[in-house]
């Protein structure tokens, strides 16, 4: 039986429960950070700052008995752990992905919200959301089977011929694996994510304000420039950063098309690369055979760097997005 006193109690219980769940997310994040820090601690001691600036990744001679020691921790002889090529590979492939994806995704968002009839826009939205949900290994396989031969045979030579006067478009195309293929695969993956979020943000533009622009005799495109885009700018920016976060951390698809380069700084857009996430996977097997465990600690440190990078990228994006949505809600 419901008595008046019961509702507040339930209310409070609900508040406590949701508080625990919400707080749990934060605790989980902190826990991941602490675990990563603990696992990578020997590597941090062994490598110091050289970890981020070194360009050589060599897990050393695993079959000899000689050890090299540094700051009181031991690693196999000859071991050096420098991840600058992986950092660059990650950043550059994500940058290419964002540069390609943003105009396309914003265009799709505008098309869905402003240009298509409501029903057609809704069904296309559904397809965009489905695209966002395709497992990355499927896209990676597509990249391997379709994209790479195409880059190697047609697109790469064409780019060289047309844009070859710019240094980064010079150099051997090779098999087609590498920076360009990684960027394209990532662009395919993040375009639907950015487009779907952009669509949601654009929908928040108050109808009254849009009608105000039309009422002045502005065309639809002029209205979009005057009202919809300024209104949605911070939200779209947030969407882009979310997409960037996704690209930085993507593993499987990139692993399949990047060329898995080690000890090699990317020279041009066709260079084989390794990204941080993909390297953790590709190097894990051999790292497990290191009797000192240092190679695994070094991989953990890559994970730590990637984790910090993701947090730095995602937190401002989430804040921007939620404030954009809130402002849209206020103006309704």
């Amino acid at each position: 039986m419901a008595t008046p006193g019961k509702v507040p109690i339930l209310d409070r219980a609900m508040r406590v429960a949701t508080g625990i769940v919400a707080g749990g997310a934060l605790v989980a994040m902190l826990a991941i950070f602490v675990f990563l820090l603990r696992d990578s601690w020997p590597s941090i001691q062994y490598n110091g700052g050289h970890f981020l600036t070194g360009i050589t990744w060599n897990i050393g001679n695993l079959y000899g008995n000689s050890m090299s020691s540094h700051n009181g921790v031991q690693a196999p002889a000859g071991a050096t752990y420098g991840i600058l090529p992986f950092i660059l590979g990650t950043l550059l492939s994500s940058l290419i992905a964002v540069v390609l994806a943003v105009p396309l995704a914003v265009g799709i968002g505008l098309l869905l919200v402003e240009y298509l009839p409501r029903r057609l826009g809704d069904s296309l939205s559904f397809i965009v959301e489905m695209l966002a949900g395709i497992p990355s290994v499927v896209i990676g396989l597509w990249g391997l089977a379709v994209l790479i031969p195409w880059i190697g045979r047609d697109f790469g030579p064409w780019l060289q011929a047309v844009l070859g006067f710019i240094p980064i478009f010079r150099g051997p195309v090779g098999s087609g694996q590498g920076l360009l293929a990684s960027g394209l695969v990532l662009a395919v993956m993040i375009t639907p994510i950015i487009a779907a979020t952009t669509r949601d943000v654009l929908r928040q533009t108050p109808r009254e304000t849009k009608e105000g622009a039309l009422g002045l005799g502005l065309t639809r495109w002029e209205m979009i420039r005057a009202v919809s885009l300024p209104w949605s700018a911070s939200g779209i920016f947030g969407a882009v950063i979310l997409g960037l976060g996704r690209a930085l951390g993507e593993t499987m698809a990139v692993l399949m098309v990047s060329g898995s380069a080690v000890n090699y700084l990317p020279q041009n857009i066709f260079s084989p690369i390794g990204t941080m996430a993909a390297t953790i996977v590709s190097q894990l097997d051999s790292a497990m055979t290191d009797p000192t465990g240092m190679a695994v600690h070094a991989l953990a440190e890559i994970a730590l760097v990637l984790f910090v990078m993701s947090v730095v990228v995602n937190v401002p994006a989430r804040i921007l997005l939620s404030s954009a949505v809130r402002r849209g809600g206020d103006a309704q």
Binding site: P206, E208, T209, E211, G212, L214, G215, L216, G217, P230
Partner: peptide, 16 residues
């Protein structure tokens, strides 16, 4: 047409 026939709406709707 709308340049010649302007409109003011029920609720103020300034641009951002």
């Amino acid at each position: 047409l709308r340049k010649r026939v302007g409109m003011v709406f029920q609720r103020p709707n300034p641009f951002p």
